[in-house]
């Protein structure tokens, strides 16, 4: 599971923004929202006749596989970096 998400934004004529997001504490703070999202996903699975366990398992696999992903995009003097650890 991801532990830390790093976001860096460099824009011309502005101060660079660097944000480190610890995933677990943020997820705990947002737990009520997470529960609502999971419930909505379960309802959607039932409506569209998709196996709930399979869908939740696949979603968990996607979340678990996120560490190591890195997106670094630079255009002119603007740069955005998103790294998941």
């Amino acid at each position: 599971m991801p532990q830390l998400v790093t976001v860096k934004v460099n824009r011309p004529d502005r101060r660079p923004v660097r944000v480190w997001v610890p995933v677990l504490p943020v997820a705990l703070v947002l737990l009520p929202v997470v529960v609502l999202v999971v419930l909505a996903a379960i309802v959607a699975c039932v409506v569209f006749r998709i196996g709930v366990a399979r869908a939740l398992g696949a979603a968990w696999r996607v979340i678990s596989a996120l560490p190591g992903a890195r997106f670094d995009i630079e255009h002119c003097r603007t740069a955005v970096l998103v790294a998941i650890r």
Partner: peptide, 26 residues
Amino acid sequence: GERSRVNVRVPLQLLRAGVRLAALIP
């Protein structure tokens, strides 16, 4: 004359997980 650079690193495990998720599409 303006330079653009993209550097993306995606874990292969994420691609595999995405394939499994895509298999659920009705």
